[in-house]
Write a protein that binds this DNA or RNA. Structure first.
Lengths: 185, 185
DNA sequence: CGGTTTGATAGACAGTGTCTACAAGGTGAA
DNA sequence: TTCACCTTGTAGACACTGTCTATCAAACCG
């Protein structure tokens, strides 16, 4: 296994175990057992390394999508929504990294390729359901953007510290149920 | 005007003009014309200062709410949703800071007080609409959490770099229209 | 007046990303 | 073989960062 892959592995482990704040170039180098400057032989900088890590996150998300069980378009879309939320809750640090523009390189080729594929897949699920009589006439990508944003906000606010003030803390599942009910009726 | 207030002002200006990454203790001190250690005489650390800045953001958000024009519950709720999105798009750096748990102190008393007030206000708007025949029987705070998350995701994803892949970039207003249509019918 | 508190300063420290000079080892051509 | 070259890793330096501490000046107050 190449040193480059080993660095991404180490960084991903560090990310999962210690959080976004612990993923420093020097920390990764130490965890990988190399000198503090070694990672720069394989990545142009911290953002490039973290982009490679985030790309893994998007890849796993895409795999969750393509691995979805068969079913009606409606069932598949609902399962995908649950999958998005599940992924975020199961990998909070990775999820945070994936949307931290200051830590990754937004123009990274691999990253944009995979993240676009995730959105396209989700939009296709929406389009398939639309072939029924659900919201006909609306651009499926616009519909997908809106629904995705709702899921994303749910995940983000939950990870941020509960979905509401201190006086009330619904489970993410119950809030997702309300969201899906609003969109899918 | 006290030195403490002046520091918050300076930090808020720096935040708006240079972004979250520029809001360092030393940068704020330099912009305020004091030595690099001076801010620590008024705040226990960086997180405390940034919490005070973020509290201003929540306060402005609350003011936008209480300043809402009269109208039917439905009109007021829709206006509040637009207001939330408008605020985020008009103050992207402030909006980012307000939800960056690693930069602020989540237990800051003022911060939690004002942010909870924002949510309570929003939940009250939802509750008022519910007194009609909209989603009767559902906890208004659960409904508010779900709707708020949708707005939040919209704002977050838009600021993150468009609501979708590179191939498709809807305006936040059009996506919000879809969201409001889903929830409010 | 004297003592105390408050506010500000400058220096130090560890930690960060990044750059540069250098060394070790492999590769391939003369 | 021998030599040049490239890759990979190392160690040191630099400018940053947040935070701590010692010092100092001014204001306040009994």
């Amino acid at each position: 296994m190449g040193a480059r892959t080993r660095l991404i592995d180490t960084a991903a482990n560090l990310l999962a175990e210690e959080g976004v704040g612990a993923v420093t170039l020097r920390g990764i180098a130490k965890a990988a057992g190399v000198s503090h400057g070694a990672p720069l032989r394989h990545f142009s900088g911290r953002a490039a390394l973290l982009s490679a890590v985030a790309t893994r996150g998007y890849t796993e998300l895409l795999d969750r999508g393509t691995g979805l069980p068969d079913g009606t378009p409606r069932e598949r879309l609902i399962a995908a929504c649950h999958g998005y939320l599940d992924f975020a809750l199961a990998n909070p640090a990775m999820f945070e990294l994936m949307f931290r523009r200051d830590l990754i390189d937004p123009d990274d080729a691999e990253l944009t390729r995979v993240s676009s594929a995730v959105f396209d897949f989700f939009a296709a699920l929406v389009g398939a359901l639309q072939d029924g009589d659900w919201h006909p006439g609306t651009d499926p990508r616009l519909l997908a953007s809106s629904l995705w944003a709702s899921l994303h906000g749910l995940a983000q606010l939950w990870l941020w510290g509960g979905l509401a003030g201190a006086s009330f803390a619904p489970s993410p599942e119950s809030a997702l149920a309300v969201t899906l009910d609003a969109y899918l009726g």
